[in-house]
Design a protein around this nucleic acid. Structure first.
Lengths: 196, 196
DNA sequence: ATATAAAACTAATAACTGTTAGTTTTGTAA
DNA sequence: TTACAAAACTAACAGTTATTAGTTTTATAT
């Protein structure tokens, strides 16, 4: 009769959610079974339900936590008295850092959100849309201030977000390379392009 | 007793694969059932097996077709006697055009490939890796020729590929906007950045 | 019209799904 | 030690899954 191991700081449901992040990333939400999740925690599947309400809620908690982290960061950036290009740069750096440090959760939030049941799905998409819109605003301000090229702001925002969402591929570089150097490299490329 | 409708040019298995692309994109490979696929074709599920071998093979055919299209395009570009930046631009434009014209298949190949059973999974990943490596080569040549900034070529390649994979979001603009203008906008941003 | 092949059908299977009910064990505080 | 709550367990359910076997219908070519 094994037990779910916790450290002092985290609840059992937090531990389950963490392992679920890993599993959902590796196999996808639907292909990952509760029995498999339980096995990784050295416990039988029904035991999980002493700590969580449903599989779907695990996904919701993962997506919600990610969305909240990014929203909070954007709140902070928005209030800072810095130029639009500095704001954009800070936003990009936060994406990169978070991707490298919270790989599993971020991957799940980026790729498995469509399996959220309603009303969580609509909530999540609304948060995403808000985030995009606020980023578009920053770019618009940068164009007005003469800092940015006169691109379509929405195209610019979504192209950058696209690039940042694909950053999962850099996870393996987390230990190999100098993370800061990688971050700088990506920031430079997204802001100023590749052509001389 | 309905029938699977085909036009003169396409086989029944091609029609099934096409509908499967749509379904796999909307619901994900695992959440999409063969019964659902059959229903969309006005047929019972077992009838499908007169034309296909397995659900997994549908996924394989989708991923394989996409991989082949991109490899063929890269073959063509590589042989052309043009500058590295022109090659990169052509490659980017092909990604954008293909994303807008073959949305479902591309989305499935980009997001559902991890559900391929072996040995198809390994084959697909190998093809992907080759594609990335060849793109890195183009960028290396561009740096040597003084056309590109001295970024890490692999970081540059994967950042651009990241951005291009996220292009699914532009699907809705397919009919609204001028597709060519959208394409130019994205190309400009990826090649020369956003900052003035 | 008749024979044959293609392609649909119905019925069924074995495996797996998330989750519940009810029970037993474990940890904790008096 | 005893009482109580927390958290594990076993057994089971109702539903879904891809797929097979065997049969019947439909289309095609002689």
């Amino acid at each position: 009769m094994a037990k779910i191991l916790t450290t002092k700081k985290q609840t059992k449901s937090a531990v389950i959610t963490k392992v679920a992040s890993l599993l959902f990333r590796e196999k996808g939400y639907n292909a990952a079974s509760m029995r498999e999740l339980a096995e990784q925690l050295n416990v039988e599947a029904p035991s999980l339900y002493n700590h969580i309400n449903s599989k779907a809620e695990l996904l919701r908690n993962i997506c919600g936590e990610v969305a909240e982290a990014f929203t909070n960061n954007l709140d902070e950036i928005t209030e800072e008295p810095i130029s639009s290009s500095k704001k954009l740069e800070k936003l990009i750096r936060f994406h990169i850092k978070t991707t490298l440090s919270n790989f599993d959760m971020l991957f799940v939030a980026n790729h498995e959100w469509r399996h959220l049941p309603e009303p969580w799905l609509s909530e999540f998409l609304q948060q995403r849309k808000n985030y995009e819109n606020r980023m578009v605003q920053i770019i618009k301000q940068g164009i007005l201030a003469g800092e940015f090229k006169n691109h379509q702001p929405q195209v610019a925002a979504l192209t950058i977000l696209s690039a940042l969402r694909g950053l999962e591929f850099w996870q393996k570089y987390n230990k190999l390379n100098n993370v800061k150097a990688l971050e700088n490299n990506i920031v430079q490329q997204l802001l100023t392009g590749i052509i001389k």
